[in-house]
Amino acid sequence: MTSVATSAPSPAHSLSRRELLCGTAAVGALALATPRIAQNAAIDPADLTPLIDEVSDLVLPGSRVARPGAFIASVLPSRWRGLTVDDVQRVGRWLDQAVQGQFLRRDLAQRYAALASLDAAAFGRAPAASRAVDAETGQSWQTLKRAVLTAWYTSEKGGAGDLAFQLVPGRWDPDLPIGDHPHPLSNDWLAIWFS
């Protein structure tokens, strides 16, 4: 039997409990099937900032205030939340083609319609006549969507604005009327983990 040193990632992939519980399995499935090679070195991730800002603001209106583009672009080289430059570019290309021009130069209604169309197609909910989304682009979209959601709800404005944030709750109330806490804690770590 061959031995493998563990200083390198295991060549075999098995769905781990952590992946299943974190809900990353579905999003990461294609990424695992498609070997991750070096990211597009010709692109400066910072150039993708405007696109990411715009996509974030369409997914979660108002989230631009947390500057998601700058943050995500800064961590793109390390594949934060599984996202790559290629993913963002792939989504950008699809959106450009959907508006038959430059996505970022279209008006809000057109940008929203294009992104909503991509999202619906990626989730298999697009009308039959809609523009198709290939599996790779659909996967890239879901990965980018995960990144913008994470960027927002782990920012102070999103995590302590839309949601509640109390690092030291000080008590455990196991059963309360929903009206007492209509907004969940963004630091409900178990719920984050298990959602």
Partner: peptide, 18 residues
């Protein structure tokens, strides 16, 4: 554990916007 799903569920929800 029994929890109420939190914001990461949005990754698996279709839809964008308000």
């Amino acid at each position: 554990v029994g929890i109420r799903a939190n914001w990461p569920r949005g990754v698996h929800l279709p839809g964008v916007g308000p």
